[in-house]
Each structure stands twice: as structure tokens, then as C-alpha cells.
Design a binder for these strands. Structure first.
Lengths: 111, 111
DNA sequence: CATAAAGTTAACTCATAGGTTAACTATTAT
DNA sequence: ATAATAGTTAACCTATGAGTTAACTTTATG
């Protein structure tokens, strides 16, 4: 599937990933699901702070959440990571398959 | 190669990618190298504005630049895209290979 | 030599991201 | 019933990102 560079969903996903602490949360969740409070303790963040990160990840559909009693369980939804990966892969392929070197391009331009 | 979530280089790369206009520049450069001025015209950005984006991409090592006379040629350096891709792929694999569902996890936790 | 072209740099504005503290809601335990 | 736990929401602070305009440097051209 071809992903346009200006896709709004790609925007929210890459913005979500462009933060160390959120990537830390994703790392945790790749090992096992967790709760909001556990994540806060693990990453030495206050509850309001972790809450914002979780909401950012949730909006990007990188995680899912389920409330049980007063506890909020959170788990990775790795399908969405595929969106970012697909976008990146496009350009690796495009480049790898024989684009001219900068030097060649420059000398052609200067003729 | 295993990429730590808190790698500084991963940080600069993902921050660079988390912007639509910069992804647009990368898209352009995936077709062919270009110059700073051409990119500015293509994306309807002022020279100072495009200059900042280019520097961000250059710091992330996503592009390379070469000056020839007064013209600045720019080209994609897609090797670095691999860094982001590798990081993402780790978690797709980790997740895909049999993590418990959230529902299962929750009911186990509540025993 | 004077002027235009291609960028760069500096100083500024404005919006937003990430954090804080404090007040609040809902669920569980004593 | 009261108090503690788990999380949410609101209001605020501060730093930073993306853009602007204006001044400057370097290279090319009439």
C-alpha cells in the first residue's frame, strides 16, 4: 500500500513516535500490557504527564486501552506501526534502485 | 541491528520525519536530487524556511548537500531511513509473535 | 565595476508540546 | 460512612519549532 507523505494519520503516528518517552512506553508494551499507573512509575513520570503521552499514542492508534474497575489497562496495537514502516520503505526502495549520485547529477546540471 | 528506543540519532531522525513539509522534501528527493531554491519553489516556502528544514534533515543525516558555485545541491541519503525502519520493525515482530490479548491479560491480572 | 542571484544568518513572533500543581470523579477497601 | 487508590481534567508555565522580515555573504553576469 502506497502511503502519501501528507497523510494525516501518518502525521499523528510519526509525531507520536518522535518522542523518547513515548517510545519507551511502546518498548514496555512490546513486552507485555500494562496500566497507566505502572507506566508512570516505570518512567518516573507523574500521572498527568503519562496520561498525556498515552492519549497521544491512543489518538495515533498505536495503543488500545481498556478500563476494568478503576484500573486502565493499555496494550500495543502494532498494526499502525506498519503505516510508518510502509512509508519509510517506499523511499528506501526508490533510492536503492539506482538513483544517480549527487556528483553525477551536479555535473549533468552544469552542462 | 537492535536500536535502543532512547538512541539520540533515532530521536533526530524521527523528529525530522514528523513533519509534513520535510516528508514532502524527502519525496521530491526520492525522484531526483534538487537545489535549495528549487525545493523552496516546489513547496511554496521562503528560502529561510526551507533552509531550516534542510538543516534539520541534514543534521539527521537524511540528506547530503554539496555546494557548487553559489548553488546548493541536495540529495537523499536513504541509509539513515533504515535506522527508523529497524526500530519500528523490532516491535512489529515482538508483537506479532504471540503476545497475549488485552482481555486475557486483564483476566489474568485480576485473579 | 555594478547588479542580480542563491543562500545564509539574525532577530523576532506565534503556536504548540511537555511538564507542573490542584481540584475533581469513580472505584475499592476499612 | 470514610478514606485510599487510580486516573482524569483544568489552568498554568516554559521551552522549542516553524514561520516571518531584514541584513549580509558569496558567486555569477551585463
Amino acid at each position: 500500500m502506497r502511503i502519501p507523505y501528507d497523510s494525516p494519520q501518518l502525521d499523528t503516528v510519526l509525531e507520536a513516535l518522535a518522542n523518547q518517552k513515548r517510545r519507551g512506553i511502546i518498548h514496555d508494551l512490546s513486552l507485555q500490557p500494562s496500566t497507566v499507573g505502572q507506566l508512570a512509575r516505570n518512567h518516573e513520570l507523574s500521572l498527568p504527564a503519562i496520561h498525556k503521552h498515552i492519549r497521544t499514542l491512543e489518538n495515533a492508534k498505536l495503543i488500545i486501552r481498556k478500563k476494568s474497575g478503576r484500573t486502565n489497562f493499555v496494550a500495543l496495537d502494532s498494526a499502525t506501526l506498519g503505516l510508518a514502516q510502509s512509508w519509510i520503505t517506499q523511499y528506501q526502495v526508490a533510492w536503492g534502485s539506482g538513483q544517480a549520485s549527487l556528483e553525477n547529477y551536479i555535473s549533468r546540471m552544469q552542462e
